[in-house]
Every structure is written in structure tokens, then in C-alpha cells.
């Protein structure tokens, strides 16, 4: 199998990215749920650049004149999927973050209202007082 220059460049870039991702995993800079998609994104170009014939066949079957365009489209789709996944993760974090802030406020109020912003005027949250008694 003849390996052309662009394939070598693509493969080397992919290997470099893989090494970076693996190093980040090793140093625990990437959290366990999040490293798998990145590993896939890093390794995918290596496979696709060395193993071209199935892609070329698929491109021809789809009627794509310029075969690498299929790979480019595939790469963009992969990036899109990764971004979507990260947005889902961030949404979950935002939700949890707000929940924590609410719980913190509720617990502070329950624990000692005088230490929250109310200071000396703080009123503990107790049952209703009639307008006359206040």
C-alpha cells in the first residue's frame, strides 16, 4: 500500500493529539467521563487517514466527486457531537450549581439567620405573625 504525504501528516497529527490526550488522562487533568470522547476524536483521523479505500468507496457511492470532502464532513460532525456532549455536561453542572446555591441559602437561613446578611436585624423563619403582634 502506497502511503502518500498527506496521509503521513494526518497520521502524525493524530498520533500527537493522542499522546497529548493520553498524557492529560495520565495526569488526571481530564476527568474519567470526559476523556473517552476526546480519545475517539484523537484516534479517528489516524484510522481514517491510513485506511482510505473504504472511505473512497463510500464517497463514490454517495456521489461525492472530491473524496476527502467526506472525511472533512465526518470530522466536522465529530466536532459537533463533541460540542453537543460538552453542552449537555455543562447544562448538568449549571443545574447542580444552582441547586447547591439554593441549598446553601436554605441551610444558612436554618442554621443561624443572624450570621447571614440580616445581621442584627435578622428574623428567623418561623410561623406567621398576625399584623397586630408585630
Amino acid at each position: 500500500m502506497e502511503i502518500r504525504l498527506f496521509q503521513t501528516v494526518a497520521a502524525l497529527s493524530s498520533i500527537a493529539l493522542t499522546v497529548i490526550v493520553v498524557e492529560l488522562i495520565r495526569r488526571r487533568r481530564l476527568k474519567d467521563e470526559l476523556w473517552l470522547p476526546w480519545l475517539i476524536v484523537a484516534i479517528a483521523p489516524l484510522v481514517t487517514s491510513l485506511w482510505i479505500s473504504p472511505w473512497a468507496a463510500l464517497a463514490r457511492w454517495l456521489g461525492i466527486q472530491y473524496e476527502p470532502a467526506l472525511l472533512l464532513g465526518f470530522a466536522i460532525l465529530l466536532c459537533f457531537a463533541l460540542l453537543l456532549y460538552l453542552t449537555v455536561v455543562v447544562s448538568g453542572l449549571m443545574r447542580q450549581n444552582l441547586r447547591l446555591a439554593q441549598e446553601l441559602g436554605i441551610l444558612r437561613l436554618r442554621l443561624d439567620p443572624a450570621e447571614t446578611s440580616g445581621g442584627e436585624y435578622a428574623t428567623p423563619l418561623t410561623s406567621d405573625q398576625s399584623p397586630e403582634s408585630r
Binding site: R108, P113, T116, G118
Partner: peptide
């Protein structure tokens, strides 16, 4: 709080 409310911070 000064006006007499409980405050959730």
C-alpha cells in the same frame, strides 16, 4: 431584614 423579613441569602 431591617424591615422585618427573613432573608435567604
Amino acid at each position: 431584614a431591617k424591615a422585618g423579613a427573613s432573608v435567604l441569602q
